[in-house]
Design a protein around this nucleic acid. Structure first.
Lengths: 204, 204
DNA sequence: CTGAAAATCATGGAAAAGGGGGAGAAGGAT
DNA sequence: ATCCTTCTCCCCCTTTTCCATGATTTTCAG
């Protein structure tokens, strides 16, 4: 039984690397690649792979969103996230959206094959070396409400509470409350610390 | 005449991708790869390539620093930076340290070959699609003094002027001055905007 | 329909940042 | 020797953030 693989990554070198690593493997059929979310969705209408290797960063849409979209439309497809070591925090969100695991971009041929066969059995594949820091980061990512995200971005853009209140047509007190809640959720002492964390987690 | 290539990148998939793209090219000799700065320097003591393809992010040292180090010890080697599109601002710093050009990680085989042959002639290779945004970003990176960097990091860690002054054994007025200068250099309206920009430029 | 979560608003006070200006000392570079 | 940058320090005043505490209305899923 062969496993049909499709890859979505905007870096040609990575696509070529994986293709090269998998090309002589028995039981693996290479269906092709897409370099953005749009052409990925287009391809899936034609042909359905067993496993999709999906990068976190895509030009037109984040892999996190694309993952949710694909799983909603094609629940049977297994998705493996591709990430670099310093992107581990995003993988968690991808797995919350239905991904079955992730591979680091410095994975060896063996790890890739193990990952593919693991998720094909319906299990999760978590790279051992990274699983621990993932556990940690999982708790560290605050869950923000729609309004909080909005306020956070405006704060980061340099606006004061007054200006934000005017822009959102709410009172300053409301903005202040959101600000306070943001500080609490990020466990930050002040805005400087808040913004630093938020940018590093790419929430902004 | 063959060009001897060496690559430094901590992502195995990228190494494999480039190797695969270059392996059947005449005039290209593949010397091997390193996955960190240390083993790169070790390799260069044994054998000297004509061109090094070098990633920006390495586990033990930044490609920016490694680039300076290599060029100082082996001025004859040409270095091509490897970057993703959202890392363009760092490439400038790499080229200030002696790199002869850069390739995006979504470069095609043709672009890679063109890049290599261009730098071998002693010219700079700038990917056309990215050259413009590079020009722009070049000016946008503020040059900070040693003390300013120090203060910036402490601000980002959530400390107040008072605490920073105590930590650095200077008066609050001094810290305040640095803070003001930072705001001016980043053209930021307040700390939120400052920190956001600084983190995005990876100055923190 | 009904909780729980989210969004809204408020008061008041202490702490910190922002904005303008000025100025002396230390060090390096030419 | 002189210039320039950096680092240091000061004053005054306004704005904004931060903290504590409490409360009402919306929204939305079970």
């Amino acid at each position: 039984m062969t496993t049909r693989i499709f890859i979505v990554d905007d870096h040609y070198m990575v696509i070529e690397g994986i293709r090269s690593l998998l090309q002589n493997e028995k039981g693996i059929e290479w269906l092709g690649h897409a370099m953005n979310a749009g052409s990925c969705m287009a391809f899936l209408q034609q042909e359905l792979p067993d496993v999709i290797l999906m990068d976190i960063n895509l030009p037109d849409k984040s892999g996190i969103d694309l993952c949710a979209e694909v799983k909603k439309k094609y629940p049977g497809v297994f998705i493996i996230g591709l990430s670099t070591f310093n992107q581990l925090s995003f993988i968690q969100r991808m797995m919350d959206n239905g991904a079955s695991g992730y591979l680091l971009k410095n994975a060896t041929q063996e790890e890739i094959l193990t990952g593919i066969s693991t998720v094909m059995k319906g299990k999760l594949y978590l790279s051992a070396e990274a699983a621990t820091s993932l556990q940690q980061s999982r708790q560290d990512i605050p869950v923000l409400t729609r309004r909080e995200k909005e306020v956070l971005e405006l704060i980061a853009s340099g606006m004061t509470n007054n200006e934000i209140a005017a822009k959102l047509f709410v009172s300053v007190a409301t903005v202040d409350t959101h600000r306070k809640n943001l500080l609490a959720k990020f466990d930050a002492r002040n805005i400087a610390m808040l913004i630093k964390t938020a940018v590093q987690l790419q929430l902004i």
